[in-house]
């Protein structure tokens, strides 16, 4: 993590938000996972800092979802959550809070993960946010008869530059179809799967946007991005993927961004214990055992 001007006040902001986030994860029944900081290099792992040690390659703090994919090939359905730092672009760290639902049915996992995100943000006092849902399969299907141009079309999507598609040697009718997908954003689309998600979530802040694509190779179909008009960065995102023979859906939120947006009311009910003697600690121990918040001053 980069050295902050005031590491301790930044840490306090992250810790305060993390406490609420962990509580929401727990309420939804997600089990916190603690992954190793260093993983043996694998092409499946994303991000992280590449290092060599004893003639072997390793990654320090890689992307958590890919780390789970590498480590958990098969097994029981799981609901996992984490708060961890991921290294991107070398030594630049980013704190993430995320969750993965592994081994459920497609619709159940997407609905639960998106519901979890909505409650998590609301718990942090963030009401002004949107979730845009897209589908990789919609694009794969649209590109079936022009699959030789898949790379160019995904580049156009990444840059949101339709000019790249206009220059391709494909029929005008296909260009029109891609143009429609490129610019579609609404709550009812030609994709029934996405319509069903939006209808079942029943939240005005959720939209279908075919232009929403996340460029991580493990995503198979549904992808989504969470954002707010109050901040220029995405708050987070995620999508559906596969772990061994099981399907999964997960998300990661940028902890520093959501902690910065959080509107948490001051904690109340903390019992302040004053005393000239150290006996205040005896009383504090009793109160803590009763799950009461204390501070000895």
């Amino acid at each position: 993590m980069k050295v902050k001007k005031d590491l301790f006040s930044q840490s306090r902001i992250l810790a305060r938000a993390s406490k609420h986030i962990r509580d929401v994860f727990d309420l939804w029944g997600y089990e916190e996972i603690f992954l190793p900081a260093v993983e043996e290099y694998s092409e499946q792992l994303r991000d992280g800092l590449k290092i060599t040690y004893n003639n072997a390659f390793y990654l320090v703090k890689p992307d958590i979802t890919s780390q789970i994919v590498v480590n958990l090939k098969n097994g029981e359905p799981r609901r996992l959550c984490y708060i961890s730092e991921v290294l991107k672009d070398g030594i630049n760290g980013r704190w993430q809070a995320g969750a993965e639902f592994i081994g459920g049915s497609d619709m159940q996992m997407v609905l639960e993960i998106l519901s979890l995100i909505i409650t998590l943000l609301e718990r942090l006092g963030i009401e002004n946010f949107y979730i845009d849902i897209g589908s990789i399969m919609v694009w794969e299907n649209a590109l079936k008869d022009v699959s030789e141009y898949r790379e160019e079309v995904f580049l156009a999507l990444k840059r949101r530059n339709f000019g790249v598609i206009e220059e391709l040697d494909i029929p005008d009718q296909k260009k029109e179809e891609l143009w429609y997908l490129f610019n579609f954003r609404g709550r009812k689309s030609p994709c029934n799967r996405l319509n069903e998600i939006v209808e079942n979530l029943n939240d005005e802040r959720v939209f279908i946007d075919f232009g929403t694509i996340r460029f991580y190779p493990y995503y198979e179909d549904i992808v989504f991005e969470v954002y707010s008009s109050n901040v220029g960065h995405p708050l987070g995102g995620g999508g559906s993927y596969r772990v061994g023979s099981m399907k999964a859906c997960g998300f990661a939120m940028n902890l520093e961004v959501i902690a910065g947006l959080a509107r948490l009311t001051d904690e109340d009910g903390r019992i302040i214990l004053k005393g000239k003697s150290w006996s205040a600690y005896e009383q504090a121990r009793k109160l803590v055992m009763e799950k009461k918040k204390v501070r000895v001053i």
Partner: peptide, 15 residues
């Protein structure tokens, strides 16, 4: 250049 979030929150104007 267009900000990724502005593209969503100001979709019509930017398009």
């Amino acid at each position: 250049l267009v900000n990724r979030i502005a593209q969503k929150t100001r979709f019509t104007m930017i398009n």
